[in-house]
Amino acid sequence: MFPDGEVWEASSAARVIPPARPRKLAKVPFVELADGRLQGVVSSGSDIGRVYVSSIATRSYAFACSTNNNRPCGGAHGSFCKHIGAMITEAVLQYGADRVARYLRVDAAADARAITEAMTATRPAQADRSAAAPVFSRFLRHLGYLELAATTAPLPEMQWFPSTRAVA
């Protein structure tokens, strides 16, 4: 045991922040607040083999949406498409409206609709789609972890993380 009682800091597992509310993963299997963007993977409503990689930049609200094979979304011309709307809704379920609004630098934080309306009122520009590849790659990596058997043993690929405390 450590002086402040934080045993988890010396383990190979990190604390997981529970979602604000439970959400269904079928429509938006992956959503994150990272790299200065709200970004995620959204399932296609018409083709089971297609997903969309969507993102919204912090402050500028510049957005991008494209398929997993890097074709532009047909609905993201000048305004948010339905994939981006679904991603915002699921991010609010996952992280809570306050956290999403704070991360994106949006004043309105009541719910997903208020956040979306505040961003669209600024007339955001369409962004560079170069973020799609790393986001989709992270999503695939997360899927790989789901296929691993449940264990408390360390994962060799995660052992490069530096230890912050010596084990006594």
Results as ranks from 00 to 15, higher is better:
Cys73Asp: 14
Gly74Leu: 02
Gly74Ile: 06
Gly75Lys: 07
Gly75Asn: 09
His77Asp: 08
Gly78Trp: 15
Phe80Leu: 12
Cys81Lys: 13
Lys82Tyr: 12
Lys82Ala: 09
His83Val: 07
His83Tyr: 06
His83Lys: 03
His83Asp: 03
Ile84Ser: 08
Gly85Cys: 13
Ala86Trp: 10
Met87Arg: 14
Ile88Ser: 00
Ile88Asn: 01
Thr89Ser: 12
Thr89Cys: 00
Thr89Gln: 10
Glu90Met: 06
Glu90Val: 01
Ala91Lys: 13
Ala91Ser: 14
Val92Ala: 05
Leu93Arg: 04
Leu93Met: 09
Gln94Lys: 04
Tyr95Glu: 11
Gly96Phe: 05
Ala97Met: 06
Ala97Trp: 14
Asp98Ala: 13
Val100Glu: 03
Ala101Ile: 05
Arg102Ile: 00
Tyr103Leu: 00
Tyr103Glu: 10
Leu104Ile: 01
Leu104His: 00
Val106Pro: 02
Val106Phe: 06
Val106Ser: 13
Asp107Glu: 09
Ala108Tyr: 06
Ala108Asp: 03
Ala108Gln: 13
Ala109Tyr: 08
Ala109Asp: 15
Ala110Asn: 00
Ala110Gly: 08
Ala112Glu: 09
Ala112Gly: 12
Arg113His: 08
Arg113Val: 15
Ala114Pro: 03
Ala114Phe: 04
Ala114Lys: 04
Ile115Arg: 15
Ile115Tyr: 15
Glu117Asn: 10
Ala118Trp: 00
Ala118Tyr: 01
Met119Ser: 09
Thr120Ser: 10
Ala121Tyr: 05
Pro124Ile: 11
Gln126Ser: 15
Asp128Val: 01
Asp128Leu: 01
Ser130Tyr: 04
Ser130Cys: 12
Ser130His: 01
Ala131Asp: 00
Ala132Pro: 01
Ala133Gln: 12
Pro134Lys: 02
Pro134Glu: 14
Val135Tyr: 01
Ser137Gln: 01
Arg138Asn: 00
Arg138Cys: 09
Arg138Gln: 06
